[in-house]
Design a protein around this nucleic acid. Structure first.
Lengths: 343, 343
DNA sequence: ACTTTATTCCAAAGCGCTTTGGTAATTAGC
DNA sequence: GCTAATTACCAAAGCGCTTTGGAATAAAGT
């Protein structure tokens, strides 16, 4: 059952049927109702391929990632993706995943997608400080939205959270509680979000005139193993150097830290304070941490939804100034933080 | 730059150019080389939309899941998906994700996708014992492949692992070690894989004439919380009823169990034996469990790759009998299992 | 009654590719 | 030297939709 069949059935031209279904004003309400009823009755669905060819729009958004960095193994990313798919589905878009690898490097995947008009727009995550994908996509004239920020000569649509502010707040809380030797367990500072967190952390220490001991600033994978191994090293330091508080980029890291702390017979919140950033993942929750974890929190799934909304808005109204959201991050006080113990 | 432009540039018809690029035999090697060089030079890429319309093939595989059961929050699924995307990318296919929800229920999403010819085939995971999606997709004439098995009147392509055999082996090991009171922490037995594991478990106990205590057979989410709460209950039982070994459907569950065991001052492998199924997830590894975990193992990412290969094979050669793989599962002996302690 | 303006519909072109059914040029067969 | 087979290419149709530029009808204005 295609447009032509349906129009013959109705005794109308396919033009009229098409316009009726797509809500154009040049068709009377009466025939519109008739057409829609007939379409429903016969289960008519326009062919996506034909529509694509005719309009140049694919109704598809793309996500590309390198094979080496398997984002699908990262719960932060999949949670983000989940929000994105949800929103896309609500807005009538599909999301396609493409993996770049080896010969088929990321740039080529973008080029191919663009030229083949497979997708209407791209969703980028985890930007580097100065991300090469931005100028590339702009050159290819492919619309995109960024989850995060990066330096760029021209404005582009993005959504980011206030990483700097979040980590400033968190570090500020710790200094207010009297902590001076604070460890920062960060992500890889090649990425912008990690850099921002580093900056916020340092600014907070600067406000109380506390020096930043570079020994206490660590970066790496944001998982439990990393948290554990760094904590083990740091808590072995002589007591003048040993951190009294940890600020982590993820709850997983905090999990690793907590394990070491407990293993040393210390108590979190009393002997060692602990704050982590909480992406509101389904299965990793700050509130059921033991003890409940003080955290900077921002839902990454919600970010996924918003990112898609921004991109679709941008696709539908290309002229308008693009959305550039920066979400504030809440600092939620729970029981993993306390005043520094006088030595 | 489209086919016509390119053909004009070459002084050939677009037919010839198309055939040259698509490897048809009716074109001389000389012109083929010439055409390919020109295509490369001018960065020509056939429009996916046009090709779709002309061939009826979209070059896209679909994955649908209900909003309620957010598979993207499940590392087992995302690891599987990761393998699938990898393989699809190697075979020149895209994978699109669609989320069914509320009004837009799963059946409608399938219908829509089929009718709109958005995808060439569907990938289904986690089948129920008798999964309604199978007859639906068959009725809609949409090719598919199943990760898992289900009852069906007609044959269809699938890949499954030998869950029954795996859990038989695992339970058999435990009975050989003298265990008779073995707890099974299973997934939801609405799903076929969980049912198969249940069957394997029971058969193993039957071979030594050990009764199955239904109190010790539990099912639920395959996460740490579930493992922990069930283990807590079971290990509180009076010693005649208390299990001496646990067989878990996931390492996460085993994590929960291990936590309880340690908390009670017991030692895994000596006081309580523990086996889990290991999907070879990147971040959850049986070999770095404490102690290293005896496990039935099978890479779920590899399964994702194979599933896509099967589907693509089926799409390209629809007539041929479809692949129906059942992979054996290795039982890897490590240190979490030991002989039952004489009471 | 005659023109103007809205309204409602339609014919036809086009999106860029694949594929069918050729024709012309070359080679082989006898 | 003539026919048959093969090779190398091409013209045109079609995939199913959107969209442009009318045409016919009905309503309104003078």
């Amino acid at each position: 059952m295609n447009l032509r069949d349906l129009s013959k059935l109705l005794g109308l031209s396919h033009t009229t049927v098409s316009r009726a279904l797509n809500g154009f004003p040049e068709v009377s309400e009466e025939t519109r109702v008739r057409v829609k009823a007939a379409a429903d009755l016969h289960g008519y669905r326009p062919s996506a391929a034909a529509r694509r060819l005719a309009t140049g729009q694919s109704g598809t958004l793309g996500v590309v990632f390198p094979r080496e960095r398997n984002l699908l193994g990262d719960l932060r990313f999949t949670e983000f993706l989940s929000g994105a798919v949800q929103q896309a589905s609500d807005l009538g878009y599909d999301i396609t995943l493409a993996m770049a690898s080896g010969t088929q490097n990321e740039e080529n995947v973008y080029r191919r997608s663009v030229r083949a008009a497979r997708v209407d727009g791209m969703i980028l995550s985890s930007p580097l400080l100065e991300d090469p994908r931005i100028p590339l996509l702009r050159k290819l004239n492919m619309p995109f939205v960024l989850h995060g920020r990066t330096v760029s000569s021209e404005p582009f649509p993005y959504l980011d959270i206030d990483n700097e502010g979040a980590f400033f707040q968190a570090a500020k809380l710790l200094t207010d509680l009297g902590h001076r030797r604070i460890a920062l367990l960060n992500g890889d500072t090649a990425f912008n979000f990690a850099r921002d967190r580093d900056v916020g952390f340092r600014k907070a220490l600067a406000t109380v005139g506390a020096p930043v001991d570079s020994l206490l600033v660590r970066e790496g994978y944001m998982n439990e193993e990393h948290g554990e191994s760094e904590a083990r090293q740091l808590l072995m330091l002589p007591s003048q150097q040993k951190p009294t508080a940890f600020l982590c980029s993820s709850i997983s890291q905090a999990d690793g830290v907590a394990r070491v702390v407990r293993h040393m017979g210390l108590e979190i919140g009393r002997d060692v304070s602990l704050i982590a950033h909480d992406d509101r993942l389904q299965d990793i929750r700050a509130e059921i941490f033991d003890p409940p974890l003080t955290a900077t929190q921002s839902s990454i799934a919600e970010a996924g939804r918003r990112v898609v909304a921004i991109l679709v808005q941008h696709l539908r109204h290309p002229g308008e100034p693009c959305a550039q959201d920066v979400w504030p991050v809440d600092l939620v006080l729970r029981e993993s933080t306390g005043p520094v113990k006088s030595q």
